[in-house]
Each structure stands twice: as C-alpha cells, then as structure tokens.
Amino acid sequence: MELITKPIIFIIFSLLISLSSASVVDFCVADFNFPVGPAGFPCKNPANLSVNDFVFSGLGVAGNTSNIFNVAVTSANDNSFPGVNGLGISMARLDIGVGGVVPLHTHRASEVIIVIHGTIIAGFIASDNTVYFKTLNKGDVMIFPQSLLHFQVNIGKNQALAFVSLNSAHAGFQFTSASLGGNDLPTEIIEKITLLDSQQIKTLKNVFGGTN
C-alpha cells in the first residue's frame, strides 16, 4: 500500500507546484497589429505593456457635434482603449447639442447612462413594442437592456453631456436610419420590408451614402 501511495502523493504535489508557478492571465490588452475578431483582439505581448495601456483620456474632451444629428459619441472601447479588450466593459461620452439626438439604435450589450448636465429624453422599445421613456436631468441614471432599440434627445436649452457604460468591450452599434440608408439593397426591396415609400428611402440613401 505504501509503495502505491507515495507515487500518488508525489504526482499530486508536483501538480500543485506546477499550478502555483504557472502564469496567471489577468487581462488581454489589445494588439492592434492584428485584426479584431468576434472574441476581440489578440493579446499584446505582456513584455511590451505599460500603464498607458490601461488609461484613456479621450472622454475629457468634447466631441464635434457638427453633423446631421447634432451629436458626438466618443467611445472608449477596444478599438481605442486597448486595456478593456476581453474584459466585457466599455464607456462612451455623449455630447448632444441643442435639439440634437442619439438616433434610434441597438447593440449587443446592456447600457447604463448618467446625465452630467442638461435635460434629455431617453427611452427604449421592448420586444413587445412597449415604450419606456423619461425626461432625465443631471445625475439621473437609466438602463437600456441588451439588444433593444433605444434613443436620447436633448430637449433642453443648452448642450447636454452624458456618459454611458456598456457590458461589452465592443458593443457593435447599429443605427436604424444609417443601416437602412447606407447600403446597396434595392429601394423596392426596402419599400416592401419597411413600408416606407421610395422617396423616403431615397432621402435616407442620399444622407447615408447608399445606392440602388
């Protein structure tokens, strides 16, 4: 019995030693030298990391709202903030001009918004087409569940500022209007699948660069 027990104890002890000395993978900083995939970017060589990989300063700067929606979205996701790669979290800054909107959109992540200043209407549409919307003021927080269509509109007299957090390093934003108008799907097909008339569709295509 003793001859059998000793080898087993030795094997278990060796295994524990190897596990305790193995490298612990705490993070996977994005390596931008390679393309991103569904699981994110490949990991940067740990020997080449610095604290700057885990810091992002872009959210302190107001974005340019000179566009059709009068809004700027500054994202701190795995495309711009390598430290969040693989961690299932990202942030964004929303600068919304007077009368500006973050148009109806969706993404593969839940989102929390906090209003820093200004007054906005924010809301989402549930899968049963129930709409949940409310006027938000400074300090108010609202949640938008994963994959549901949602929006924000500045109804105040001054520019609004809000920050959002998402439970994905790359949420994959898809704006409804841009998706309909920024493609080469023939207008007659879009008419059938949306009930929009051809002139409305052509207007969207002119705005967002679509064809056909």
Rank of each mutant, 00 (worst) to 15 (best):
20 S>P: 07
197 D>W: 02
50 S>V: 01
142 M>P: 15
139 G>E: 14
17 I>V: 10
99 G>A: 04
98 V>Y: 06
42 P>G: 00
93 R>D: 01
141 V>E: 05
157 K>S: 11
33 N>K: 08
117 H>T: 15
180 L>W: 02
198 S>H: 02
182 G>Q: 10
148 L>W: 06
1 M>Y: 01
21 S>D: 00
175 F>V: 13
6 K>D: 13
171 A>F: 06
104 L>P: 03
86 G>Y: 13
53 D>T: 02
123 G>L: 13
154 N>F: 03
41 F>Y: 15
84 V>T: 13
90 S>K: 09
169 A>C: 02
196 L>W: 10
195 L>C: 03
189 I>Q: 12
190 I>H: 13
52 N>T: 02
211 T>H: 07
27 F>M: 00
74 T>W: 07
88 G>H: 15
99 G>I: 00
20 S>Q: 14
190 I>W: 12
173 F>E: 13
75 S>W: 15
153 V>T: 01
43 C>F: 02
52 N>C: 00
131 V>A: 14
130 T>R: 06
95 D>Y: 07
34 F>T: 07
101 V>T: 07
212 N>P: 14
110 S>E: 15
51 V>D: 06
32 F>Q: 01
30 A>D: 08
181 G>M: 03
106 T>S: 13
36 V>C: 14
205 K>T: 03
85 N>R: 11
63 G>W: 08
15 L>T: 02
148 L>N: 04
80 S>L: 13
100 G>Y: 11
6 K>H: 09
94 L>H: 12
76 A>E: 00
181 G>Y: 08
201 I>A: 14
211 T>P: 04
165 S>F: 05
143 I>Q: 13
84 V>W: 15
169 A>D: 15
144 F>V: 11
96 I>H: 04
143 I>F: 12
20 S>D: 05
24 V>H: 10
169 A>V: 03
155 I>S: 09
130 T>V: 08
15 L>K: 06
74 T>C: 07
72 A>T: 12
70 N>G: 11
20 S>R: 15
85 N>P: 08
10 F>R: 04
201 I>S: 04
69 F>P: 14
168 S>H: 03
112 V>D: 01
204 L>H: 02
126 A>Y: 14
58 G>H: 10
158 N>E: 12
65 T>M: 04
89 I>Q: 02
114 I>G: 11
34 F>I: 02
116 I>N: 06
50 S>K: 00
42 P>M: 11
191 E>A: 01
102 V>Y: 05
129 N>T: 14
32 F>D: 02
187 T>M: 01
